[in-house]
């Protein structure tokens, strides 16, 4: 089942597929999620580090970047293996205030 990602403004950004790919609400490939030591990191399609996945529940995730953190070495770019079914977009949610130095990754 896909996980829905929202921006801190509450706008629906897209979803994460079961195999960890990040897609926009229109099904455009944005990148992928990698798990490391229990944390989930987001990389964009070009392999650049974008941020950390914050999962409030399976219907509400954010991908956030600490602007004061040092970006890791870019990964090898990945392309989307196949286009999955695009879930019906959920309604936007209430905005969430972000701490200082944290911003939406996408």
């Amino acid at each position: 089942m896909a996980k829905f990602i929202f921006k801190s403004t509450g706008h629906y950004l897209g979803f994460i597929t079961i195999d960890g790919n990040i897609l926009s609400r229109d099904g455009i490939y944005l990148g992928w999620i990698e798990e490391e030591d229990g944390k989930h990191y987001a990389w964009d399609a070009e392999g650049q580090f974008r941020g950390t996945l914050k999962e409030i529940d399976e219907n509400r995730c954010y991908i956030l970047k600490n602007i004061y953190s040092i970006s890791p070495v870019p990964r090898k770019p990945k392309s989307m293996p196949s286009t999955p079914a695009i879930p019906a977009p959920p309604p936007n949610i209430s905005p969430t205030p972000l701490p200082i130095g944290i911003r939406d990754a996408f």
Binding site: G51, K65, I70, P72
Partner: peptide, 10 residues
């Protein structure tokens, strides 16, 4: 001595 965003030391 710092860590990057994924915890690698630098």
């Amino acid at each position: 001595i710092v860590e990057d965003a994924t915890g690698n030391e630098l």
